[in-house]
């Protein structure tokens, strides 16, 4: 029996002012999968990622076609509120972007606007749970009122992950979350992803093929706006089916 997908894309296409950036992408994401989207710059992987929580809505001239379903709801349907979509599908960006607020308030921002807590105690609980899940609690528990921007890059990125999971999303999108981090901070994030996968479905865009191989159980390769191949990470990195995948991952096209 095949498991029901958490999210699935059907014939998704994206164009910016009439220029096609992505065409005919169909892919399923199962619950608790960690899926890496890889491909050369400009292949459409970030564009596709941004479709998954309607981040492209904010870009003028961007038109998304096809269907993206989250638990059988088309997230582009006119009855669906994009804010609701983004609460269920969180996002972590390339550069750590904590709000210019305290560590505590960074985490509370989402739960507050979504009315998830009724008391200070409940907020405290959310803050501790989120920071613990993001592997940051021990490092910051004594300075929760200090500004988030005062943390190191790696800590800031984990703060952003903590902030995104504070509102209990079901899917987390990550757009090259380690590209601005050093190897140690990268290792910590990778370790964290391994733990987070038990609670969330994680879709990650990465330029590091080795990272994709290490952290994900499925990998999708994009090239020139097309999804070329998607499959088990083990298979993609040992016996890819498509010649273009082979050429990309072995360093022959970029």
């Amino acid at each position: 029996m095949t498991a029901k997908p958490k999210m699935s894309a059907k014939n998704v296409g994206v164009s910016y002012n009439g220029k096609v950036a992505l065409s005919e992408v169909s892919i399923d994401f199962l619950e608790h999968d960690v899926i890496s989207l890889i491909g050369p710059s400009g292949c459409g992987k970030s564009t596709f990622l941004r479709c998954l929580n309607r981040m492209n809505d904010t870009i003028d001239g961007c038109v998304v076609s096809g269907e993206i379903q989250l638990d059988n709801y088309n997230i582009y349907s006119s009855e669906i509120d994009p804010v609701e979509v983004r609460a269920r599908v969180g996002m972590v960006f390339q550069k750590p972007n904590p709000f210019p607020k305290s560590i505590y308030d960074n985490i509370c921002y989402g739960p507050r606007i979504h009315g998830m807590a009724n008391s200070r105690d409940e907020l405290d609980e959310i803050v501790e749970w989120s920071l613990t899940s993001a592997g940051l609690w021990e490092e910051v528990k004594d300075r929760l009122n200090e500004p988030g921007t005062g943390l190191s890059g790696g800590q800031q990125q984990r703060l952003c992950i903590a902030r995104s999971i504070a509102i209990h999303p079901e899917v987390i999108l990550m757009d090259e979350p380690c590209s601005a981090l050093d190897p140690i901070a990268t290792a910590k994030i990778e370790e964290l992803l391994g733990q987070l996968r038990s609670k969330f479905t994680i879709i990650i865009v990465t330029h590091s093929m080795q990272q994709a191989a290490r952290i994900s159980n499925r990998t999708a390769f994009f090239h020139l706006g097309e999804l070329i191949e998607e499959g088990k990470t083990d298979d993609i990195f040992t016996v890819p089916k498509d010649e273009r995948t082979q050429s990309y991952i072995t360093g022959r096209i970029g």
């Binding site: 080795q210 990195f237 040992t238 016996v239 995948t245 082979q246 072995t250």
Partner: peptide, 9 residues
């Protein structure tokens, strides 16, 4: 070189 796929094989 961290070879993969056909190179690794």
């Amino acid at each position: 070189r961290s070879p993969v796929a056909a190179d690794l094989r």
